[in-house]
Simulated assay, not measured.
Amino acid sequence: MPRPPARSATNAPRLSLRPPQGVTRVDDPRLLDGDHREGEHYERLALDRQELAGITLQECVLEGVSLDDTDLRGARILECAFEDLFAPVFRAPRSSWRETSLRSTRWGSAELYDSRLDGVHLDGGKLDYVNLRSARLTDVLVSGCIIGELDLTGVRATRLALADCTIGTLTLDGAQLRDADLRTSSFRGIQGIDGLRGVTIDEYQLQLLAPFLAESMGLRIEG
């Protein structure tokens, strides 16, 4: 009898996301910094350059909303569902995200440093630069995304998976990754190769990483 395929020793992100139910559509939310909004549905709205620092969105749905240069410092995003978010500049440092899905996101630069993401699925979309420096990630899945630069400098992550993504530069200086799975994703360059310690990759990725590994070890390869 053929042997069953070997199971990966890497634990996958634990996600149990459910779309918010019974939400109320709000066409003119008049959001303010520090607000707590719950069970609301915002669709095709421009919230550009608004001051929304410290806002809490709980069990809310945002579809086709523009958040260009909107101040979301310290925002709390809880059990929400976002789709087609647009922001050439997305500013949400020191924010908290829990049990939230984001689909078809289009961000130029995303400032998410010092943030905390727990149970988050970023699915599809195009992002030029994602700054997650010193963030804490638990049970995070990024799938089907095109990302110009993903900066994970100083990140502490548990059960992080990058699936079917195309990433230009992955920066891992000082990163501490546990149960991180990069299989099926591609990278043109990696900085901070030591941050890959303990990460799961496939054989093809190992071949692509060989020059970076050799450089980090000071090896000279001559034919």
Rank of each mutant, 00 (worst) to 15 (best):
D35W: 03
R156Q: 15
C165Q: 13
K126M: 04
R178G: 14
S101K: 09
L47Y: 01
Q50R: 09
R94N: 02
A75Q: 06
G198L: 10
D114Y: 03
R197F: 09
R49H: 08
A135N: 08
L196F: 14
E63S: 01
T169I: 04
L196S: 11
L67G: 00
T56C: 05
R136L: 09
G168T: 15
P19Q: 03
E38P: 06
P19G: 00
T153M: 15
L209M: 10
G189S: 15
Y204K: 09
L150I: 14
L206Y: 12
E79C: 06
R7L: 04
R37S: 02
D84T: 02
L67E: 01
S8I: 02
L122S: 05
G198E: 14
G108Y: 08
R136F: 09
T169G: 07
A175K: 13
D202L: 12
T166V: 15
E83P: 01
L102K: 08
G189V: 09
I55G: 03
S104G: 02
P93M: 00
A110C: 05
G192M: 09
L31E: 00
A110M: 08
R37K: 06
S115R: 05
R116Y: 04
V140R: 11
S104F: 07
Q21H: 04
T70L: 01
E99S: 12
